[in-house]
Amino acid sequence: MTAFTPIVLVHGLWHGSWCWSRLTGPLAAHGVPSVAVDLDGHGLAGRSPAARWSRPFDPAGFATEPAPSAAVTASSAAATLVAQIRQAGGGRPCVVVAHSMGGVVATAAAEQAPELFAELIYVTAFAPVDGRSAVDYLAGAENDGELVSRLLTADPAAVGALRLDPGEVSRHASVRQTFYHDVDEHVARAAIGLLGPDGPAGIPGEPLTVTRQRYGSVPHTYVVCTEDRAVPPALQRRFVADIDAVSAHPTAVVELATSHSPFLSAPEALAGVISAAYRARRSEPVTA
Rank of each mutant, 00 (worst) to 15 (best):
T258V: 10
S261C: 15
S259A: 14
A241R: 11
A252K: 13
L264M: 11
S261V: 13
E268G: 08
P267N: 07
F263L: 12
L270I: 07
S265E: 07
A271C: 01
D244M: 09
S247C: 03
P267V: 09
F263H: 12
L256M: 11
T251R: 01
P250T: 03
A266T: 13
P262D: 10
H249W: 15
V273K: 00
T258C: 08
S259I: 13
D242Q: 14
E255Y: 12
L256I: 03
T258N: 06
V273F: 08
V253R: 05
V240L: 05
H260A: 09
A271V: 14
A245G: 06
P250M: 01
A269F: 08
P250V: 03
H260K: 02
V240M: 04
A269Q: 15
L256Y: 07
I243C: 05
D244F: 13
F263S: 12
P267M: 11
T251S: 00
F239T: 10
S265A: 11
P250Y: 00
V246M: 01
V240H: 07
D244S: 08
A248I: 05
V253N: 02
S261Q: 10
V246H: 00
A245K: 02
F239H: 14
S259H: 14
E268T: 15
E268P: 10
A252R: 13
H260Q: 08
S259P: 08
L264N: 00
V246P: 02
F263D: 05
S247W: 04
S247H: 04
A266Q: 15
D242C: 04
V246E: 00
V254E: 02
V246A: 01
A266Y: 10
E268A: 15
F239E: 09
S261A: 15
A257K: 09
P267E: 12
A241K: 06
I243Y: 06
V240P: 04
D244W: 11
A269L: 15
A271D: 04
I243E: 02
V254C: 05
A248T: 12
A266H: 15
S259E: 15
A241N: 11
D244L: 03
F239V: 12
S261H: 10
H249S: 12
V240A: 04
V240F: 07
E255D: 13
L270P: 00
T258E: 02
H249P: 03
V253K: 02
V273P: 02
V240Y: 07
E255C: 06
G272A: 14
H260S: 05
D244G: 10
L256S: 07
D242I: 07
T251V: 11
T258L: 06
A248K: 12
L270H: 04
L264F: 13
S261F: 13
